[in-house]
Design a protein around this nucleic acid. Structure first.
Lengths: 328, 328
DNA sequence: CTGAAAGCGCTTACAG
DNA sequence: CTGAAAGCGCTTACAG
């Protein structure tokens, strides 16, 4: 199009100020004037430029949401809730794939800064690194930031994190109490979150006086099937495996069945995240529910408070729980 | 923050014009001046306002991506590719949940218009309705629109669609040729895409002189398990089922196994979409690959051309293929 | 090589 | 109840 309020003003025989007041439902406009302007606005399919509006109002009415990869189901849930909730309040969400490297993530902080977002949300513990921290200090020191499952001790950064150490330790104890004595752990990529899960496993193993056995798989079904088979081949006494991620446990379970072993009779399995995969797998996967929903809700609520009050700062912790299905 | 180029100009003892030229790497600036300005820009963590810049340049450098629900794996793939690709070119993606109803989807067209996006992408056939069409005609008649898996015969709307009629018909023929004679179809929500799949089934059934048997399930694992069990109870002669969506087939397969039937011996199953679920399920699901990747790539390429040339208009068709695994 | 001025499309005191 | 003017933070002819 390209219509401006001046075009509408001319058409209606009024000034741009009046058109602006009608658009923004300001009081003190004669009814007949208002109706005439409204009609012309409607008939010409006029649409105000949010950019121009934002420039004078000093607000973009945009929220920046950073996720390392939006295809990751686990991370998109938080973005969904926020987008849904804030759209109704007139905010648009800039949902960006911030990439894998620390530097790439940090550069996205700059991008959000230049778009002058009203607030930023970081989804996933992988944002917890020095590059990102420095970028926030340099480029968005006064913009509210909500960190989902990670934290920075910065005055403008609030956070909601899952107590993953506890979650994994509880899973270990459950397996131990059911009589398992060779409980292995299948880790994935090195992220702050996965480090906490691993800590929980190591801590629990030590507390129960058991030897720890840790294997690592990349975050793909194929790699996990291979890593699981290798683990069992090298340690045939293994009678339980805790996986850092549900998806790895699901394809791991398939590898175990293909080896002719029974689940849970020969080997018990516990995944992490209570993802859709865990419910749909066959056998249905027991898993550590890291309370993604609660975490997302908390972030959405914190975001709302932070936008209302720039001084807002809070740190909440959510406790995981065990969901038992058919693999234990 | 709140620094403007005037603050930088004062600090550097130059005019705002010069600062702007340095920021935009314009030629014809004395080296020493450029370096001084650059240093001050860096030291003060200056970040240009993209909104102000966009206002004078008459471009937002934003792309609007509409998806009815971003949690839907199937739809987010396209958004991912586009975001990845255009971010490098300096475009930000406004990824929005456009909701289920036609009116809600149409209202998001208005939102994108007021943000003055350089182009819009509609992901999913559900956008193919009159409300959306009228909103495009009214509010973005000149903005390039790329429609993934749907189309409008509008000069500014290009499209890439999968030939789903063919895909489902081919699945039917395969089952028929393997000796199945009671091939049922499990449909899902009524969308243009699902209508095409159903058409393919009905057409193929008629061509093979077979009776059609169509059941419907809502788009949830629980509903599909129930619908599948009900279908088999009512029609025990059923020896094959084609599902409109992989996810429904996966939970359907579980329901069939729970009834004591064998897959594929008693009942063969074919899903649709070649989603991650199909590969991870047990037994692994045979499926109609609707070439989501190809569709997304095509849309991304079309988007690039459309941004470069506003006159661009193209309609591409992608042909699905059958992926055979363990359920046939 | 550099700066003053106008303008992008709005909103909001201020004046009447 | 309404309008003229200034200003939000930039960029870009134009002039020198």
């Amino acid at each position: 199009m390209g219509l401006t309020i001046y075009d509408i003003a001319r058409e209606a025989g009024v000034s741009a100020s009046t058109v602006s007041r009608v658009i923004n439902s300001r009081p003190g406009i004669r009814k007949s004037t208002r109706e005439r302007v409204e009609r012309i606005l409607r008939e010409s399919n006029f649409s105000v430029s949010e950019a121009a509006r934002g420039l004078v109002n000093q607000t973009s009415r945009m929220i920046g949401i950073l996720v390392s990869d939006i295809r990751n189901q686990h991370h998109i849930e938080g973005a969904y809730m926020i987008e849904q909730h804030f759209m109704q309040k007139g905010f648009c969400s800039l949902i960006l794939n911030a990439g894998e490297s620390d530097e790439s993530k940090a550069s996205y902080i700059r991008i959000l800064a230049s778009r002058r977002v009203n607030a930023a949300v970081l989804v996933g513990s992988a944002f917890q690194n020095d590059s990102v921290r420095r970028a926030i200090e340099a480029y968005m020191p006064d913009t509210p930031v909500i960190f989902q499952n990670g934290e920075f001790s910065l005055p403008n950064v609030s956070s909601a994190v899952a107590d993953e150490v506890h979650g994994t330790a509880e899973a270990f104890s459950y397996l131990f109490d059911s009589g398992r004595r060779h409980i292995a752990y299948m880790n994935s990529n090195d992220t702050p979150s996965n480090r906490k899960k691993l800590d929980g496993y190591l801590k629990a193993a030590a507390e129960h006086g058991m030897e720890a056995l840790v294997a690592v798989s990349e975050d793909s079904p194929e790699r996990s099937a291979e890593a699981t088979a290798a683990l069992i081949a090298a340690h045939p006494e293994t009678d339980a495996i805790i996986y850092a991620i549900d998806l790895l446990a699901v394809s791991g379970s398939r590898a175990i069945l293909d080896m002719g072993l029974r689940i849970p009779d020969d080997i018990a399995l516990i995944g992490t995240d209570n993802s859709p995969f865990s419910m749909l797998s066959n056998p249905r996967l027991s898993t550590i529910d890291t309370k993604l929903r609660e975490l997302s809700t908390a972030c959405s609520e914190m975001l709302e408070k932070a936008i209302a009050d720039p001084q807002y700062n809070e740190h909440v912790v959510v406790t995981p729980s065990l969901v038992l299905r058919e693999t234990t």
